[in-house]
Design a protein around this nucleic acid. Structure first.
Lengths: 197, 197
DNA sequence: CTCGTAACTTACTTCGAGTAACCTACTGCG
DNA sequence: CGCAGTAGGTTACTCGAAGTAAGTTACGAG
């Protein structure tokens, strides 16, 4: 099998098993077996168990960034930006139900460098939110903008986990809930109605 | 040394080393050495490395619950409940700076049962918030109340991590930020001004 | 001073991450 | 056809850390 393909397969299998059993409880031999290959191949491709985990997170991160960027492309107001971004995020989670808890919550623990990758995801989100906020209200206190972005990311992350436990709650409703709670508080910080629309 | 005392000492040392190096990178021998005792004693007291970790989380959880309960005891309005509860939480984090990221974020990963303990902390918080909300607005949609509690917990948790990175932000300011974002959205759900005060 | 037990230690076993060294099957080419 | 080079792969190890079995010391009560 060609390299790129094998690598993708390994990531897929690893993500699956990690999600099932947790990072620690999973052995490299186990992953290798399910891939249908021997352990040293995993080391050939990812260097270490930690590297494999990071590979999983990194791939998820890339996919999330692309989907989010695409989703918010046409937004015209800060409210629309937020709503579309949140929606894209929850949809992403919805597609990755099982893997998510691992990649974001569990995995972060195990290895410091995985923690960094996960922080990278959050950074991506807070940056995006911060940028949106700043572009619509240039005179906002930077520290406050940062706090706001963190709050939204935290709320969203937690609600994503909750959504997994509540099958009746889908991406649309989750988005509504978050917006209902945070939007009034944010709107108060913004200039009058809206710049131009 | 008597058992109870030894146990407390072990928890303190373990929390410290886990926070310094992370759960995985820490060996039981290392903890034992720093306690000034041999490894099997740790197993005598906690059964496993996982058990030791859970012991750490459990102790933190108990302390947090007690402090929060004491803090909100005298609150008269939902706003005051929330504010005092948040304040107590951020103060707790502030006192446990280094341990926090570990116990809540990193550690959760490694072992599924630690994850459960950590979820217990969150459960404690969401329950408390849900109860406050329900007591002031009995006719609120239960699902919505739950979502709200999750949002607040998520926002708070994330802001706590952020606070660690920003020395200039203390518990008071963190509380203000969270309240500024979420309170307007919540107030809209409440009945008129306030029941009696 | 010796019995009993709480608190502790030394010396293992086991299991999984990581590695060294070797193998195979295909591709292009004289 | 036959052979060289290499991508992709395997077997068989080492080593470190979790967990354990069996024995040892300290010390208060009779």
């Amino acid at each position: 099998m060609p390299k790129a393909q094998r690598m993708a397969q390994m990531l897929t299998v690893a993500e699956e098993i990690f999600a099932e059993q947790g990072y620690l409880a999973t052995s490299m031999d186990e992953i290798a077996e399910r891939v249908g290959v021997s352990k040293p191949m995993l080391y050939e491709y990812f260097g270490s168990k930690e590297g494999l985990l990071i590979g999983c997170i990194h791939r998820a991160r890339t996919e999330l960034r692309e989907k989010t960027a695409a989703a918010i492309a046409g937004a015209q107001s800060p409210e629309e930006f937020l709503r579309l971004g949140l929606r894209a995020f929850f949809e992403f989670i919805d597609e990755h139900r099982r893997s998510w808890a691992l990649l974001r919550q569990e995995a972060a623990v195990a290895v410091p460098s995985a923690q960094e990758e996960v922080e990278g995801i959050r950074q991506q989100q807070t940056d995006m939110i911060g940028a949106v906020l700043a572009s619509f209200t240039p005179d906002i206190d930077p520290l406050e903008a940062e706090a706001f972005a963190e709050i939204v990311v935290g709320a969203t992350e937690r609600l994503a986990v909750w959504m997994e436990r509540r099958p009746s709650v889908g991406p649309a409703l989750a988005t509504d809930y978050v917006m209902a709670v945070i939007w009034p508080g944010v709107a108060m910080k913004l200039p009058a109605p809206a710049p131009h629309a």
